[in-house]
Amino acid sequence: MISFLASRLAFAGLVLLVLSAFVFFLFFVAPGDPARLLTGEKATEAQVAQVRANLGLDRPIHEQYLSFLGRTVQGDLGFSYRNQQPVTKLISNRMPATISLGIGAVLMWLALGIPIGIMSARHPGSWRDRMGQGFILVGVSFPTFVLGMALLYLLYFMPRQAGFTLFPAGGYKPFLADPLIWAWHMFLPWVTLALTTAAIYARLTRGEMLAVMGEDYIRTARAKGLSEHKVVLKHGFRSILTPLTTQLGADIAAVLGGAIVTEQVFGLQGIGSLAVQAVGNQDRPIIIGVVLLAGFFIVVANIMVDLLYVLLDPRVRNAH
């Protein structure tokens, strides 16, 4: 068990290392001189050289990478080329919107996907199953940005033309100011971000439940005289927690990336839109920072999943 966790931790570290190397070397080989980008078009050669030396850009690549790693570990992600603000500060300013979006979406897709999947699997072939499968198909096929735009058109613009406001067009309102207003503003973004993943969860839950419900131990549970409700939830659902957890780890990790499109559609000032703006502005420190933050998320999510695994599966727990 210890060695299992150790190997997972090592893997998490590897993910971070690979990601950091990826972005760092990507920008190193990229055309365009950062010092020039930083100083602007009008700066003289000498000024550019001065900035280059200040940033350590004249040193060998591996030294630069190591010092970059060192700074990163200390939580220093450098400064934005555009407005010289610390990247960490820019990111933390954008955190609340993205975190609100992410948490709500995760809860929504779990609350939607798992029950639909169970319902579908309990009566395979029935009309409920067909409804569930329809939801799954439409859900996995709906491109996020099309869904977001359609929702905006149907639930914001059309009611507004009719003279009332059903949902706001977007924008982030702080949770602490008024949780209701916050939720009202976040609702359409949540649906947008959650639907596809909810469909994936419904599909996963349905498939796993169907497989599990054919297991011999489910027959044992029935032969014991348990109610169907208990058979499904206590014996059936318990077994699929492990694959669900695995999937959840991967998806929580991917939320930050998925939020990009949603934030863009609803004009949320989150980390995703920060990254998109940074790409437009060639503001590399911000891109590096966001990618590393995403990597950090992934690592944390992975470790949480592994710990949950140990809790969930006695066979892992007892393996020495």
Partner: peptide, 18 residues
């Protein structure tokens, strides 16, 4: 595993920006 845990869209953004 590694490729699967890389944030797809973000890395695509980084690549496109370069």
């Amino acid at each position: 595993d590694l490729v699967m845990s890389i944030p797809v869209l973000l890395c695509a953004l980084a690549l496109v920006s370069v």
